[in-house]
Design a protein around this nucleic acid. Structure first.
Length: 505
RNA sequence: GGCCCGUUCGUCUAGGGGUUAGGACGCCAGAUUUUCAUUCUGGAAACACGGGUUCGAUUCCCGUACGGGCUACCA
């Protein structure tokens, strides 16, 4: 079938967007764009009890930040609107009823209490062919009883009737052939008592209605795949069923298991794409964005968790990823998240991103620190000098604050023990030569500095470090003469004088 | 417990019947940077185990072990 490639990301708006979720979006997006297809955002808000206000907007903001914008969404609309399952509620019942009519599903009247009692009484209880006759449903009750119950408005659900002794086999794009014995799959609820579909019904109906061609989701969905596949068949849509791809999971760095928000809190790294403030508790969970990650680095590190292009290349732009992505090269095994490597990707991206493109991030940091009105050319020069020393964008202030205000503290331990009157004299002379200097640039200044040191019989190394401490405050930063050149003649003089007063008092 | 999925350096991975099993992060050492970082060079570091198949298996098959996922009127 030469149908158009259409994929979807279908999150449940229950909280912050997990990095695994973003990777699922990314693989969806890359696959779609690689094939000139469409990427749909569908909100799966069928569980009203878990709905969290703001979560949907948050998800959209995350996608925007990552540059993975959908072609159709609740906000954008599209030919298959609405894209929010709660707004599609009336559509689902007819399909559930059709399944009942065709004998593929049935009404069940068991209360939650009854179900719990059953689960406690029978170890490994499964609502399936073995026990469904013992439950209260349209398979065990007489047609009249069923009719009466429904007419009385007794709450009920619709369950799929899993067949006996069948094998459901399908071809997963990542795992090849996977099979399930239907005897071991339970009669999943399709329509809840509140009239909302469960994920199982909704995903099939909406994927069909929205003409989804390829369905990507996490490996945790593999066990329910047979239910979905049977539903496609029972609804008569088998020929239109999307191709499935169950993505490997992202695992916690230590030990094993799916990476969770808790692991991030525990180990000190973000798990959500952006800051997430829980509206109920007010708890703030840090995100990659606020921690100082570039979106390019974020998606780059995510794509490498489970995919590679077969070469040694590790740094990819979105366009390169789109061009090179192929589902055949997605690995089967889960990948442990490594924050050290994540930071490396960020450092690489900060280094390779042009100053103009990251300037706004730094302006924001300056704002936060009360620095305003910095001249653009000056800022650009500072960024150019500092860029390759930042692993996170947020390292900028610590690395560059001295370019915008005088240091508050000085690393006296680095100079005091070896301080001499000769050094005081040297710096006094140095400053006195400044006004007459024909030009103010790093190389001329360096020559002047060295000549004077030689003249005074001082070793260069003995005065370089103090000079740095005077200008910067500590043992860090770019080349000293670059710093002096940039902050200017006046400022350099004043910092030297100020420091001389301090150390000689 | 049952079902399903998985298993190459610590981590992300390439590879694939005959290779010195390659790269990257991290780590260690050295060079450069008269600070620190960057950069460069070098180093340690892996095919889970047992049976097959084969002249030959890390690679193919089967088991075992280990790990993970699922087992809700959650997604």
């Amino acid at each position: 079938m030469a149908t158009k490639v259409r994929v979807r990301f279908a999150p449940s708006p229950t909280g912050g967007l997990h990095l695994g979720g973003v990777r699922t979006v990314l693989f969806n997006y890359l696959f779609a764009k690689h094939h000139n297809g469409e990427f749909v955002l569908r909100i799966e808000d069928t569980d009203q009890t878990r709905y969290v206000p703001g979560a949907e907007e948050y998800i959209i903001e995350c996608l925007k930040w990552c540059g993975l914008n959908p072609d159709e969404s609740p906000q954008l609309g599209g030919p298959f609107a609405p894209y929010r399952q709660s707004e599609r509620k009336p559509m689902y019942r007819q399909y559930a009823e059709q399944l009942v009519k065709d004998g593929y599903a049935y009404y069940a009247f068991d209360t939650p209490e009854e179900l719990n009692a059953k689960r406690e009484a029978i170890p490994n209880f499964q609502y399936g062919h073995q026990f469904r006759k013992e439950m209260r449903n349209s398979l065990s009750l007489s047609p009249k009883e069923v009719k009466d119950l429904i007419e009385q408005g007794v709450p009920h659900v619709v369950r799929v009737k899993m067949p006996e002794n069948e094998t459901v086999t399908f071809n997963d794009m990542i795992r090849a052939e996977v099979s399930f014995d239907t005897n071991l799959v339970d009669d999943k609820v399709l329509l809840k008592a509140d009239g909302m579909p469960t994920y199982h019904l909704a995903v099939v109906v909406d994927d069909y209605l929205m003409k989804i061609s390829h369905a990507f989701r996490g490996e945790e969905w593999l066990p329910s795949a047979p239910v979905h596949i049977l539903l496609w068949k029972y609804l008569g849509w088998e020929a239109d069923m999307p191709q499935w791809a169950h993505l490997p999971l992202i695992l916690k760095p230590d030990g094993n298991g799916k990476l969770s928000k808790r692991d991030g809190d525990r180990l000190g790294f973000p798990v959500y794409a952006m800051n997430w403030a829980d509206p109920k508790t007010g708890d703030l969970t840090k995100g990659f964005r606020e921690l100082g990650f570039l979106p390019e680095a974020f998606i780059n590190l995510l794509v490498m968790l489970g995919w590679n292009d077969g070469t040694d290349q590790e740094v990819f732009s979105l366009d390169e990823m789109i061009e090179k992505f192929s589902i055949e090269r997605v690995s089967k095994a889960g990948a442990k998240f490594d924050f050290e490597k994540a930071k490396w990707y960020n450092a690489e991206w900060i280094k390779k991103t042009p100053v103009e493109k990251i300037r706004s991030s730094f302006t924001a940091i300056l704002d936060d620190n009360g620095i305003a009105g910095v001249e653009e050319h000056y800022l650009n020069s500072v960024i150019g000098l500092i860029k390759e020393r930042c692993v996170l964008l947020t390292d900028f202030w610590q690395q560059a604050s001295f370019f915008f205000r005088r240091p508050h503290e000085f690393d006296m331990d680095a100079v005091k023990p070896k301080w001499t009157n000769e050094k005081t004299e040297f710096f006094k002379s140095l400053v006195s030569t400044f006004p007459a200097l024909p030009s103010w640039n790093a190389t001329d200044l360096e020559n002047e500095f060295k000549a004077l040191a030689a003249d005074k019989g001082l070793k260069i190394g003995d005065v370089m470090l103090p000079f740095r401490i005077m200008l910067v405050g500590g043992k860090f930063g770019p080349a000293v003469f670059d710093i002096a050149a940039l902050i200017g003649k006046e400022e350099s003089s004043e910092r030297v004088s100020q420091f001389l007063d301090l150390i000689n008092q």
